[in-house]
């Protein structure tokens, strides 16, 4: 894939912004439109953009972890957020919230942790598919 200089330079600046934005979407999801699913997709599109401009190998290096590990950790985070209640003696997935309000993030609770799990899982899935498709295509070229 021929990469354009403009796209490359723009992506380098856009990537952190989009990632920040995706995290912002994840956090605001509880009270306003957003959430882990959308956040994950947005973050995935950031890396997809990077893959298009710089090539898949660089995008994979930038991500550092294997997307499959992202999927696994997402699932584990989501599951453990539900198990928290079990160890507290109540039903699976019963929600718990902290009393203390953190600056910027607000109250932390198990549903938020669940949403973070969803975020990583969706990011992992989208990237797994995009990377494997793009890898093949690079090989063909």
């Amino acid at each position: 894939m021929r990469s354009s200089l403009i796209l490359c330079t723009a992506t380098r600046f856009l990537l952190p912004i989009i990632l920040m934005f995706s995290f912002f979407i994840l956090l605001r999801g509880h009270n306003e439109p957003g959430g882990g699913f959308i956040g994950g997709l947005v973050a995935a599109s950031a890396f997809a953009l990077y893959a298009i401009s710089h090539g898949v190998t660089y995008a994979q290096q930038l991500l550092k972890v294997n997307p499959i590990n992202l999927i696994a950790s997402g699932l584990i985070i989501a599951l453990s957020s539900g198990l928290f209640a079990v160890f507290n003696g109540s039903n699976f997935m019963q929600g718990y919230w902290s009393e203390f309000k953190f600056p910027v993030i607000g109250k932390i609770g198990t549903p938020l942790i669940f949403d973070i799990g969803v975020y990583f899982l969706v990011l992992g899935i989208a990237l797994l598919i995009i990377f494997s498709l793009a890898e093949e295509e690079e090989e063909i070229q």
Partner: peptide, 21 residues
């Protein structure tokens, strides 16, 4: 109960979190 104003999201991650899982 769900401590959230976004009903859709509260349903997804709290009320019906098992479905989402």
């Amino acid at each position: 109960s769900g401590k959230g104003l976004n009903v859709v999201n509260v349903i997804l991650v709290d009320f019906r979190a098992l479905d989402t899982l």
